[in-house]
Design a protein around this nucleic acid. Structure first.
Lengths: 195, 195
DNA sequence: CGTCTATTTGAATGTACTCAAAAGCGGTGG
DNA sequence: CCACCGCTTTTGAGTACATTCAAATAGACG
């Protein structure tokens, strides 16, 4: 089992001693999720915090009208959880599904709480995580308010280069909040204007 | 000076001793902002974290096209800051402006850091704050993806009852990401269908 | 009272969606 | 290795939701 990725992820924000690293690792469980399988289904309680070690997950939901939307892609080196469900032990609104074969390290709620008690530094790590998450979501809201569909698409490509190669257009459209047909039109427009 | 509101706000997440309360209060500065005055202008560094004691602020920005958008209203009992600017001492993207005459308690960055060092419990408070903020923003993104303008307006009314009475339609439109003219049409539509 | 801004109203326009059909692509089984 | 099936992507026509612009009306404030 290779813990390099997750340890270096954490080390960007806090410095751990070897003993702390060992303790942290002892709380992790490794899991493989096959393509299209669910890590969490809508309505289930999210009992783990997940770190994506390889592959890619989508975080999404189905609205009143029956339309599925994606609110986030979680690639390797990303943490992901349905926070509201995890913190408050309530049924999840979002689902987590593997887009590719994916491996994760998961931490149960009780181990998560234990970790924060035993190593208060993790409170700092958590803080940085949610603060950065907040800043990123605020930017996304700002872009939703100000940008046209085409501009959102260009921003997406700039922010996640190469992700287009791994993920279907349909999912990207669903993340951007536009119809797949319209995304197809936008792509064609760009392709022709560049040639 | 009445500290009841801010102390009870904090006490919802962490329990403080009398000494801790006194220490916390000693770090606060009180400030009155007249209607339409700025607490923070775009490009300035956000050097304080603010707690709104009375009144109402708007958090907004001006995009490339010169359009102003609002990303958040901060009412009494809300904390507000340009987090990215405050944490990383970089020029702010957002501005903070008083919609009504507003009073705030502000904490400087250095006092904020001191507070977290001296009373580690505040790390827990911060955590709760940004986790809740994250959950709320995620919901807003979800609503932007799934709802029509009319539905967004109804959700806004349900979430912030009475706020319509204090804030101009133009600002609400700017928060919802729709044109003020179209909001006027929506309101008329509802008014006539209810009569 | 006059000025300035917010709101309403309507017409013309545009952006993006829906629906339907065709074409492309990838995986699976024979 | 090819043929078929299912899903994704493309394409186009018609439509809906929301915007822009302009002008009229209403409100707020000194």
């Amino acid at each position: 089992m290779n813990f390099d990725l997750i340890i270096s992820n954490i080390s960007r924000d806090i410095k751990l001693t070897n003993e702390e690293v060992d303790f942290f690792i002892s709380l992790l469980e490794f899991k493989v999720i096959e393509k299209k399988k669910y890590l969490l289904r809508t309505g289930d309680i999210c009992r783990y915090d997940y770190f994506v070690n390889s592959g890619c997950l989508k975080v999404g939901y189905v609205d009143d009208k029956g339309t599925e939307s994606i609110i986030k892609f979680a690639l390797e080196d990303w943490w992901v959880v349905d926070l509201d469900s995890f913190l408050h032990c309530k049924p999840s609104f979002y689902f987590l599904q593997a887009i590719e074969e994916t491996t994760v390290f998961q931490i149960s709620k009780s181990n998560y709480d234990l970790l924060h008690q035993q190593i208060p530094k993790f409170e700092k790590f958590s803080n940085a995580r949610w603060q950065n998450g907040f800043i990123a979501l605020q930017q996304r809201i700002m872009q939703n308010l100000s940008l046209t569909a085409e501009e959102k698409y260009l921003h997406f490509k700039a922010k996640y280069p190469n992700l287009e190669l791994r993920i279907s257009q349909k999912l990207i459209a669903s993340y951007l909040g536009i119809s797949p047909e319209f995304l197809s039109v936008l792509r064609k427009k760009r392709a022709t204007s560049l040639s």
